[in-house]
Amino acid sequence: MVVDIRDLKAGYGTKAVVSLASLQIETGEHTLLLGPSGCGKTTLLNVLSGIASTLAGRVVINGTALETLSVGDRDRFRGKHIGLVMQRLHLISALTISKNLRLAQQLAGVSVNDGIILGALEKLGLAAMLDRYPRELSQGEAQRVAIARAVINRPALILADEPTSALDDANCLAAIDLLFDQATAYGATLIVATHDQRIKARFERVVTLEPYL
């Protein structure tokens, strides 16, 4: 089991935004977190990645209870075990594509491996983009690089927050296919949070969140 959540209450400060009695996700599963805006999808992803603290309950990722980790340990844990694909936080504009990916390896505390970087980019058809800067890429290319960055450290869990909300129908489905392919190729569990109903049919499991009152 990669994700084990029990009696969770999470939010910011003392204000709870999301409440979840229980959620278990097995290795390799592709799970969709669905719900209207403000229901706590992003907050739940933040809790799973160790960015946000829990107010109550227990969150275990890949056998590690996050509440037992210090802030620094959570940062390192996230870098090593979790791949993130955010809607807007794509790439660092001052670095080339290869340096963006090398940075992800350095920050995760793993050895920089250009072979892995090139391999990941080749799988996504981006091998020629190694020395380009993010501003020289199309939105679709930038998103594929972000996906490559999420998988190069072979994370146990890939979390994607609204990865398709800015894409048209064709690109939306292509992006989801890509995430599926990459998660499968690297043996990672995939959780996608979205309010985008277009991709619902692709997931074997859908968890719908209700606004916390």
Partner: peptide, 11 residues
């Protein structure tokens, strides 16, 4: 960028 650095594991 700062948020991204933190998300990628930077302390």
């Amino acid at each position: 960028d700062l948020a991204l650095l933190r998300l990628l594991g930077a302390s």
